[in-house]
Design a protein around this nucleic acid. Sequence first.
DNA 1: CCGGTGATGGACT
DNA 2: GTCCATCACCGGA
Length: 221
Amino acid sequence: MSRALPRAFFDRDVADVARDLLGRIVVHEAGGGAVGVRLTEVEAYRGEEDPASHAFRGMRRRNATMFGPPGHLYVYFTYGMHWCANLVCGPAGTARAVLLRAGEVVEGIEEARARRPAARRDVDLARGPARLATCLGFDGGSDGLDACAGGSLRVLAGAPAPAEGVRTGPRVGVAGAGATSPWRWWLAAEPSVSVYRPGKPRRRAAAGGETLAPVAPPVRP
DNA sequence: CCGGTGATGGACT
DNA sequence: GTCCATCACCGGA
């Protein structure tokens, strides 16, 4: 068994934390038992400096956890039905966090299947941020959970992912400024990495006009 | 495998 | 009213 990552791990630049989280196992003990997910895809959100971040327009009730200390879980509700989870990073005074986009269930797979009856294959259990959150049993009540306090949530130190297996590219589902910055990291040759999808523009493009240059999707070897 | 689209509610303009 | 850091399902190739 591996010990939990300490708070100092999260109290660093969000890009470094995101990359270093790849390959680590997030464990959450909830009703039904413990489920562990090995992270294969993450994204960095740079707080108030980042137009795509929930923290861009300042602190609100929903995003208050992002402004708090690193090592806590920020869970938000979206599209009227889905929960997604982030791990808050440092330094103190910022509102930066890493979105957990995809992973592979490595513990409690029977419980994960029970929570995700729509998944036809195990590789789809935690493929996508809302699916991953469902597997781990996260919901609104999980917002603010401390991953560094020896409680129901922890991120196992394990072994860092080999650098040669790490890829980086644009974030998924993000439009506008910041859409093309390479703030998404994933592990190559992982079937659980979610499919790349560029963010929709805020307004429909005018008919007949050339508008934005298309963003090349990251190559998936 | 792929693209199109409905679901469903809260946050924000 | 519009926009979501999305998912599941459907039909076509």
